[in-house]
Design a protein around this nucleic acid. Structure first.
Lengths: 180, 180
DNA sequence: CTCCTTTCTTATCTTTAGTTAAGTGGACTT
DNA sequence: AAGTCCACTTAACTAAAGATAAGAAAGGAG
């Protein structure tokens, strides 16, 4: 990779720290920032008509997230993105990233293959888990895929991600532990 | 758009017709063909351990589908793609498409924005429907989004797509019609 | 047109999830 | 250290979904 482009890339990267509970992306935002989590935990969530918060996704260390509605569909964000712990992130403006990568075939491929794929792969697998698995199986898969997360993320958020209620999640846990 | 590139594009497009029930993409295939449905209906499905077919997605006229596992993740297909009616499609090899589009910024953007977005938008909305909606609400949304499909697609396939059983789908219909 | 297959519905029973509320245990505050 | 808040569990009830089977309706093949 061209060192000139690498330097240009680095110039566009910002490091930021956030306290627990801070909002990184607001609903309605059209910013096209791409976040890489160096340390910490972030969740995306929506607020429904009854003012309930519903968590859509959870992101941990080394994961990339972004205002997907803005980057992918040019719409404003439907989600809040909020830290669940003290969190340190690298931020790149997606437009700048695009400009840079379009100048370099290698980077372009990296951008497409890495960033795009990760996001899509995740979403795809998630649909599959809803179509093919029961809530209990989804929970088991979640634990398997994210063994460390269950101790760091409140159950109510995990329940939302699995598409069930916190009460139901608690019962599923109970059921599983009894079977053993 | 450059006419030379347009012609090159057309040289890479094949038109094909399939009878009802034919398999377009086999499980295990690594072919990177992109299909555009001119007329007809296609479903993607998996076969589980108990040899049950589980339908993952349904594609109709003017929709684009492809061996997503192969194109997006460089893996072999986990799904069969099968016609549900006599179906006419245009086929482009994705690799050829990539080569062509990379020579032309306009086409590149078209490819990214149109093909990519459509696929991703669909999957995203689908996850949202599982997280935020009940089975009954999912069914209503499906009818709203695909008013013509319900009369062309067997219920058991729709049930799979919604993540429920055919029996449950029948009951949901019954419930809805009684409420009116 | 009739027979056969497939799909859809209906019924019964069991299991699981949603809802609401009460109770328990931690963590944090003052 | 007592009180407050919040997350999680448990309980009781209702509603809905899964499984299985049987019957009705529709579609296709000969």
């Amino acid at each position: 990779m061209n060192i000139k482009i690498l330097l240009a890339l680095l110039r566009n990267v910002t490091m930021k720290s956030f306290d627990k509970g801070e909002i990184l992306i607001q609903v309605g935002s059209t910013k096209r920032d791409v976040y890489y989590i160096r340390k910490g935990l972030v969740r995306s969530y929506m607020v429904d008509e009854d003012v309930n918060e519903i968590t859509f996704q959870i992101y941990a260390e080394h994961q990339v997230f972004t205002n997907a509605h803005s980057v992918l569909f040019n719409e404003s964000s439907k989600f809040y993105y909020q830290t669940l712990e003290h969190t340190k992130v690298y931020i790149v403006d997606y437009n700048a990233l695009l400009k840079l990568t379009s100048q370099n075939a290698e980077l372009l491929e990296l951008n497409r293959s890495y960033f795009g794929k990760k996001v899509i792969e995740q979403v795809f697998q998630r649909v599959e888990s809803f179509v093919f698995l029961s809530p209990e199986e989804r929970y088991k898969k979640f634990v398997q895929d994210n063994p460390k997360l269950i101790h760091r993320v409140p159950d109510k958020y995990i329940a939302n991600v699995l598409g069930i209620t916190p009460v139901s999640l608690s019962r599923i846990r109970n059921r599983i532990s009894k079977k053993k």
